[in-house]
Design a binder for these strands. Structure first.
Lengths: 337, 337
DNA sequence: TTGTACGCGTTATCAT
DNA sequence: ATGATAACGCGTACAA
């Protein structure tokens, strides 16, 4: 292995001079020495040992990225949303001169261990974390943490990047209303906890109330997987649920719903209008093209990394909670009544 | 930050004793000391600094995973094949007690730098690398490398994990033949270089020749993107290409082809039978469900990690070139003539 | 402008 | 069974 010492010997200078050249402390080294040393570094293909540097500088240039594994599938990256977001985060971290260490974790403690083990400069959590988890993680980690898609509440001041879920719900519902729909169902899973789904529901309710359709408010409690979507689609096709439009709070779920409805003889959007949520890139391969609420995943990833880097460098952070915009993508699964 | 020294002081022993306890060198420490030290480690939530350990042990427990960025899209993880495979690789690395450092790289030199920087124990390349790149990387890296999906040739002895592409091409073509097709097109991009596509083509040719259809062999030279698929589908629908069946050498491309054909009035599989390649998980959301050649991505990822670990531990490697099996998935896009 | 001494947290070696 | 010492490769602080 090549070390500073080897370069120093070759150049006939001390280790520190080489170190200074590498770290761009040009004021401390003469121009000619810089050039000579740089030439040798290049010729010998020297690259610094970042383990040693981390030890000495108390700064690792490592950013840990965590995704949560669910019971359903050990491979979280099968979820196109997660992998898309991860790709953006990774390439942004890379651009900024940092390194990405990734782990799919079951429990927060795993994340804490990794951060300590590698003295990571910061961490990004891709999947939603509960309030308790965020609290726990913040308490036990020395480095800054950024949570993406974790339901924050106003009191807490974790660093978070979210989307305007309420607006998303509002836009989806309003669009159906504008297309003449009244009997609009909200399909998603609500519980007591704060959640992105709850926010979307608020938007749905607001749009319905503004239109004077309070009595048509119809929450369908269902897990938003593709499979559950199929079941629900069949149910709707059998007229067990009386709606002309559905706001399905996840794209894959919406796609399943459409499949289920089709399988039982319905035509989309002729007999049923559907609006999804996410605008997954795989939607472009599915026909009819899903009308959906889109979020700019690339932007979200970028913003999260930038927020984290500001925290790492202890720069001023204007807002610890960043809410990204959403918009409605008009495609083919909504029909004017 | 908590160090060995802190634990040692607390336990009233030397640093080395604590180190020995942590590393399970039980023969060197008395039973009671072990228990006392372990208790304190737990209570104080100590975790070792792996940067320091790497430095001292010349072993980092880091495995680097590289994906190649293409010009088309900076975010390689939008490709469902890549992200699926990556997820398997990551969770397998995690299971084996190693850490994953990931980088999307433009040039081989980037990968070499990262490996040297972090003294990684090994690396896995997810995207296909040319012979020259593999040679270059092998020459300049000290640690073992595993290449997935890189066209190897018999002479070279890089560690590779591939699939039986020729068999895949054979199976796809044979299936079309068994369904009564004669005019079967092979759609894919062939050049002089060794490539997975060339292997698939060999399989196609073999099946055609075995059936006595040599004169129907029809290679359609085309880049296998979704967009190109659409174009080709339209062309076929306009009867510019005389085929009843198509072996499309990538799923997304096949899906585009189907869309294009549909858009110009064709019904799939009534007017055209299509067989894809990969069996991407997103296929399950697209209807009609694509008949395709599947590979077991989970198996592939696992095999790659296991091969790498054997090399790292200098265990015996029976075969440096692992070829994974493929099989035909009969779904809805092939019709009996 | 350049060099020396020391410390970062850990492990290997050798002594007790 | 336990501990002292040196070494891993690099950066900080200070001396020359």
């Amino acid at each position: 292995m090549l070390t500073l010492k080897d370069i120093a010997k070759e150049a006939g200078v001390s280790v520190m001079t080489v170190s200074n050249v590498i770290n761009g402390k040009n004021s401390k080294v003469s121009r000619e020495t810089i050039e000579r040393v740089q030439k040798i570094i290049k010729e010998m293909h020297y690259t610094p040992n970042l383990n040693a540097r981390s030890l000495a500088k108390h700064e690792s240039k490592l950013i840990a990225v965590f995704v949560s594994t669910f019971i359903s599938s050990k491979n979280v990256f099968k979820d196109p949303y997660v992998s898309d977001l991860f790709g953006e985060v990774e390439s942004c971290i890379h651009e900024k001169g940092y390194y990405t260490i990734i782990q799919s974790v079951e429990e927060p403690q795993n994340a804490i261990n990794l951060l300590q083990n590698w003295q990571a400069d910061g961490a990004i959590f891709l999947s939603n974390q509960s309030q308790e988890n965020m609290k726990f993680l913040s308490d036990y980690c020395q480095c800054p943490l950024v949570f993406i898609d974790s339901a924050n509440n106003e009191k807490c001041d974790f660093l978070t990047v979210e989307i305007d879920d309420k607006k998303g719900g509002y836009l989806a519902t309003k669009y159906l209303i504008e297309n003449g729909h009244k009997k609009i169902g909200f399909a998603g899973f609500l519980d007591e906890k704060e959640s992105v789904i709850k926010e979307r529901y608020k938007g749905y309710v607001q749009a319905m109330e503004e239109a004077g359709y309070s009595k048509f408010i119809n929450h369908i409690q269902v897990a938003t997987s593709y499979e559950e979507g199929i079941k629900l689609g069949k149910k709707i096709a059998k007229k067990k649920i009386d709606v002309t439009g559905i706001f399905a709070t996840a794209d894959l779920f919406a796609l399943g719903l459409i499949e289920g409805a089709k399988a039982n003889g319905m035509n989309i959007p002729k007999n049923l209008s559907v609006v999804g949520f996410d605008n997954l890139s795989l939607c472009q391969y599915v026909s009819p093209r899903l009308t959906t609420v889109s979020q700019d995943i690339a932007h979200k990833g970028r913003v999260a990394v930038e927020l984290l880097l500001k925290a790492i460098k202890k720069e001023d952070i204007s807002s610890r909670r960043i809410v990204c915009d959403v918009k409605l993508e008009e495609y083919q699964t909504v029909r004017e009544l």
